[in-house]
Design a protein around this nucleic acid. Structure first.
Length: 255
DNA sequence: ATGGTGGGTTCCCCA
């Protein structure tokens, strides 16, 4: 089974590229983040025409997450229990081919010290509690998406430049470790300890051309799911060309 | 410390 996570940065702006990528790569499940649209304006037809079924949790303009899968997604849930009605659309979960998958777009945080940064840290506490409950209910759990945190020095092109900055500050990294602490593993690191594996490059300053990347998109997996992980790879090539997302697709292969 | 680039039911906000 192949599962891909991809922050597409607007599913409508990226539609041709996403559909072409699906046709070329045929994952069993695609987890999208930052779809930036409501379910009623999501381009359903293009996905259905190539044999994918959809489950969408969207909002206007910002955020939004969605699944596109070969098999029908079951037990679909949107958001976290206790979220207010108008909460940002950042989480969708479903069971696909017997695997429980949580698809997340974590709060960006803007800058250390900004109110959005404090909101990010608090949101991550609630998210960890939500994952703990998912773990109790599902032995084979896979959490994927844009975590907006680079966990370690080897995940950052210039750790000393980024140290203390949003996406790489100590409190954010502690929240990431706390998610591992409930019994999840960083799936890419099960089989790859190399530095320089990035999933995001800023549009600005020629970030991709100069390979100024960070690893922000992750698969966190339960013990049972970890045993089934064969590899996790980044499709760097998809970050190039005309009108790319600023994130590359990341694919996990499971037995 | 600043700015640069890209997307959105856009003329500012978010990343």
């Amino acid at each position: 089974m192949r599962i891909t996570t991809w922050n597409v940065n607007s599913v409508r702006a990226r539609l041709d590229r996403v559909i072409a990528w699906l046709e070329a790569n045929t994952p069993d499940l695609l987890c999208m983040q930052e779809i930036k649209t409501l379910p009623e304006t999501f381009p359903h037809e293009a996905f259905e025409a190539i044999g994918y079924r959809l489950a969408v949790h969207g909002q206007k303009t910002y955020n939004g997450v969605a699944f596109a899968s070969r098999a029908e997604p079951a037990e679909v849930t949107r958001g976290m229990p206790g979220d207010p009605e108008d909460a940002e659309a950042r989480i969708i979960a479903a069971t696909v081919d017997g695997v429980r998958v949580v698809n997340v777009y974590v709060v960006n945080g803007k800058a250390v010290g900004d109110p959005k940064y404090d909101f990010k840290l608090r949101w991550l506490d609630r998210f960890r509690e939500y994952l703990q409950a998912e773990l109790e209910n599902h032995e084979t759990l896979l959490v994927c998406g844009d975590f907006n945190i680079a966990p370690e020095d080897r995940d950052v092109h210039d750790p000393d430049l980024w140290r203390g900055k949003v996406l790489f500050s100590e409190p954010e990294k502690e929240k990431f470790q706390a998610m591992l602490g409930i019994g999840l593993k960083d799936a890419l690191r099960l089989h790859n300890s190399e530095p320089g594996v990035y999933t995001w490059w800023d549009y600005r300053m020629g970030g991709f051309r100069r390979n100024l990347g960070l690893r922000l998109d992750h698969f966190l997996v339960s013990e049972a799911a970890a045993k089934r992980i064969r590899e996790v790879t980044v499709d760097r090539e998809e970050r190039g060309g005309e009108k790319p997302s600023d994130h590359a697709p990341v694919t996990a292969v499971l037995d």
